[in-house]
Amino acid sequence: MFDFNFQEIQPILKVENLNKLFGFNKGCQNINFELFPGEVLAIVGESGSGKSTLLNSLSGHEQPDSGDVIYHAKNEQDYSLYKINESERRLLMRTELGFVHQNPRDGLRLRISAGGNIGERLMAVGERHYGDIRSKGENWLEQVEINSDRIDEQPRFFSGGMQQRLQIARTLVTHPRLVFMDEPTGGLDVSVQARLLDLIRQLVQKHQLAVVLVTHDLSVARLLAHRIIVMKQSEIVETGLTDQVLDDPQHPYSQLLVSSILN
């Protein structure tokens, strides 16, 4: 369904022998993969399989025990996320990388207006024109299907689905190239989930985003992801194109996962 010429394009993210363990088989270990620009990768597995730990390590939030996470930046430079200094890492995290939390409360300031929430990343990278920041805020509210006249309302009065859409707008406003999402539709009603998934799919295409998505919901993976990684007890047990993995799982655990959820 998508045509990538993997030979010619540099991967945007390279993960080499990544390990982060909290106890025996708790966390993630022996993780290797590459992600290409514009590609959506889903990490699936049951809770406790280590997928959230992996996401935190990939996104610069959790120092791994060993291994490397290398990000290929807009300026064509490679940055090893945990070898560069904290200042450089945090700059990348608020410009070229983005993170969407499962719970919008973790990714939003609930007592700051919607406009202030979207504007924060812009101001953090030095934008100092109130009118510009505000009009970008309005524009992004419309892009995530929130009426722009709600720009001065505080998200604590928004519904769960709206909060999640606002969090996405706040993340995308600085045009990141790689976005990490932790169960972005978790905790929402089914009808709200469908609308949000549709919106995410549109935005990913429109802005050519590379995405690493953690989900326990295989239907979310099927809808959004080009490729899937299946994790079990801290390790990758299977990886492949989404349709391959979901329609013809090879590893017994993947088979179990697919049958238990899809049936």
Binding site: E86, S87, R90, R94, R109, I112, S113, G115, G116, G119, E120, R121, L122, M123, A124, V125, R128, Y130, I133, R134, I151, D152
Partner: peptide
Amino acid sequence: ALKEYGVMHVKLYEDIAR
């Protein structure tokens, strides 16, 4: 240390908005 001051301007932004 990291000159992460965006949130200071968020406070000023909120003042103007309100």
